[in-house]
Design a protein around this nucleic acid. Structure first.
Length: 470
DNA sequence: CTGGGGAGGGGGCCC
DNA sequence: CGGGCCCCCTCCCCA
């Protein structure tokens, strides 16, 4: 039976054994038969593996021996493909490959996937499986893990497709076809892998964000510089940089775009907005929780050895991308760009940051007018000559002459309503610091105004669950 | 349309 | 290991 059109939508087989240039006698669709055949074949192979029949290679993982078929491994893993093709006569029957970079349990999950198409993922093993898959260059497994993680983190699809929001199930099993991973699929990327239902569609649109482009570029460069098999696997960071917060947890470009697009969001007040806020907060809390879970479950296998000038250097590999860092703490910091976690909210404007230093910088620049530069003429000012101008929660300095030119009349003096208090620094519950339609202005000659007026930076690392609720 | 500046994000590394 | 600093990059806004 000759395959005429294989793997296409219509699997057409010729019943006769004629060569292709001859007229076919009859055609029939054998898609069902094919699926059934593949399934049976895989089942047979799996049985053989379990009974150690015809197993022609062995894999040693931390002392535990796994028997398998080299052709199956070859077909499933880029790593094994490389290994087997380097060896002149393939792997010998003796122990052929050994790994210490992941656990036997993890390899067992992957081997089961290779032989069954079933990937037994849980929140406890997903990172390790993903990292191992990265090492073994199994893009489809990586993609499933990414989807799994994404489904864990992507919990705020409340806008257009809230029904597709998925909470993290403790354990789930993704199913694919055979454990194949051909080069076509690698090139086609994630879209070529059948996604778990309802997990995929949304974020494909995000994959074109510029944030992703930036990182992808960087990673591409880095991976080119590395000879580590781990780093040869190009994963698409974007699917994981899954922002769910409408504003603050978006990756840079999108967030700014959203910020610019919705430019100055309306003051809070109506109930739908409040509900939305609550949703956002809830989503944030869940995201932070999942991020913590991820951090907690970070396995030691993220450590990889790279060689610089033949000196082995221990580095920690990001399970989401090809980036490696020297220190685990740096990896944790880096992971925030994947998890979207922003633990440092600005008390003045509620903007959130991934790092304390960014928050501090933002606060000093935006809310404390620390820059001794006239905003209008850009000239250097001193604490004495630079008058602090307040615009909403935003503060900056203007030199005396610019202030006179602009005229205090043109600067709407702030509506303090006689309270004598700083209006907009009262925890900025209006949200975005520039988001007020009713801008509050004031000129203050007190250089220490910011410090004295309750505008101190209150550093507060939150778990997202209960802050901003007041 | 374009270039400059501001703001934010991320990496490396020192303390 | 966390905090902090420096640097670089990107994006957006605005003149």
């Amino acid at each position: 039976m000759d395959i005429v059109a294989d793997l296409g939508a219509s699997r057409l087989y010729r019943a006769s054994g004629e060569s292709s240039h001859q007229q076919p006698q009859r055609w029939f669709n054998t898609a069902d038969i094919t699926v059934s055949h593949q399934s049976n074949l895989l089942k047979q192979l799996n049985q053989q593996r379990r009974q150690e029949l015809f197993c022609d290679c062995s894999v040693l993982v931390e002392g535990q021996l796994f028997r398998a078929h080299r052709n199956v491994l070859f077909a499933s893993s880029g790593y094994f493909r490389m290994l087997l093709s380097q060896s002149p006569d393939g792997l010998s029957d003796s122990v052929s490959a050994s790994f210490d970079v992941f656990s036997p349990e993890t390899f067992s999950v992957i081997l089961d996937f290779i032989y069954s198409g079933q990937l037994d993922l849980s929140s406890h093993n997903v990172i390790e499986v993903m990292s191992a898959a990265s090492y073994l260059q199994m893009n489809n497994v990586i993609n499933y893990c990414k989807n799994f993680i994404k489904s864990s983190l992507d919990i705020s699809v409340k806008d257009e497709d809230s029904e597709r929001c998925l909470s993290l199930s403790e354990t789930c099993s993704f199913t694919s076809g055979a454990g194949e991973e051909n080069s076509e699929q690698q090139q086609q990327g994630p879209s070529s892998v059948s996604p778990p239902p309802a997990l995929w569609t949304r974020d494909n649109s995000r994959s074109q964000s510029s944030f992703v482009g930036k990182e992808s570029d960087q990673e591409a460069v880095k991976s080119n510089q590395s000879s580590s098999p781990v780093n040869e696997v190009k994963t698409e960071v974007d699917e994981l940089t899954d922002p769910h917060d409408p504003l603050y947890t978006l990756p840079g470009s999108e967030r700014r775009r959203a910020k610019g697009g919705t430019k100055r969001k309306a003051p809070n007040g109506n109930s739908s907005n409040q509900n939305e806020e609550l949703d956002i907060q809830e989503a944030r809390a869940q995201k932070a929780e999942k991020a913590e879970e991820l951090y907690a479950s970070l396995p030691t296998i993220v450590g990889v050895i790279e060689h610089f000038n033949k000196d082995p250097v221990m580095r920690f590999k990001c399970p989401f991308c090809t980036h490696t860092v020297k220190r685990k703490a740096d990896l944790k910091r880096h992971l925030r760009c994947h998890t979207g976690e922003r633990p440092y909210p600005c008390q003045a404007c509620n903007k959130r940051f991934t790092r304390l230093e960014h928050l501090r910088s933002h606060f000093e620049t935006i809310h404390q007018a620390r820059k001794l530069v006239c905003r209008r003429c850009k000239s250097q000012v001193t604490e004495d000559t630079g008058h602090v101008v307040c615009e909403g929660t935003r503060r900056y300095r203007m030199c005396t002459s610019c202030l006179q030119e602009v005229g205090c009349d043109s600067i709407p003096m702030d509506i303090l309503k006689g309270s004598g208090e700083e209006p907009s620094l009262l925890l900025g519950v209006d949200g975005e610091e520039e988001g007020d339609t009713k801008r509050s202005w004031m000129v203050n000659d007190d250089d220490d105004l910011a410090e004295d007026s309750g505008a101190d930076l209150i550093i507060q690392q939150v778990d997202d669950s209960d802050e901003e609720l007041q």
